[in-house]
Amino acid sequence: MLTLENIDAGYGPTTILQDVSLDVKEGEIVTIVGANGAGKTTTLRTIVGQIKPRAGKISFMGEDITRLPAHEVVDRGIILVPEGRQLFPDMTVRENLQMGTYRKAARDNQEQRLEEVLSLFPRVRERLDQNASSLSGGEQQMVAIARGMMAKPRILMFDEPSLGLAPIVVSQVFDVVRQIAATGTTVLIVEQNVFTTLKVAHRGYVLENGRVVLADTSEALLKNDHVRRAYLGI
């Protein structure tokens, strides 16, 4: 469904990703794990068109999307729930969710869509008419995910959804990710929380210094010596 072939990318003169290849099949939950600065966020921003790769090819549903501007990538149903929530601070929660439906394919039946999404997030429903900036970090993360869901994603990408959240909220976030995947939405998730993420995902890629050093099923990665030593502290 989504394929990256030999991607090189970075910011300005700095190269971050080197020769990154990965693929995500329809209905899968795939994770990219790695340390801070390994290039996980850069990978997602490159997929979504906010960073133009220097080399390599990105294709989605058979179409080459390497050079498309971000809004056109999003229009194809590739939705990113960004790191640090990135809500619209002076909009209400409802307006934030409405922004999720900006993509053409998501504009019909907004009310029904809102009901479906809110059924996953009861807390968000209570906050609908509050300003997004007045919510707690965990609530904001739920709104960010709900906003992504409103876009009817064909693939939903999460960038560090558990970052900065209390442990109990982290497990709620992962529950939501599991529920979203259960509805058939394809998920690509980037996390530093390696153990929990591998428990949720089918397959994983390990990114170190901008390169894919391991790619395998989650069970295999959880048993892998390098992964256990470097990321699980076992």
Binding site: Q50, V74, P89, M91, Y102
Partner: peptide, 23 residues
């Protein structure tokens, strides 16, 4: 819808782009 997109861009350009707004 357009007015909301304008406010979204004013408040958070990068996030607006992620909603599919042509900034």
């Amino acid at each position: 819808q357009t007015g909301r997109a304008i406010r979204a861009v004013a408040q958070h350009r990068v996030a607006a782009e992620l909603m599919g707004v042509n900034v």
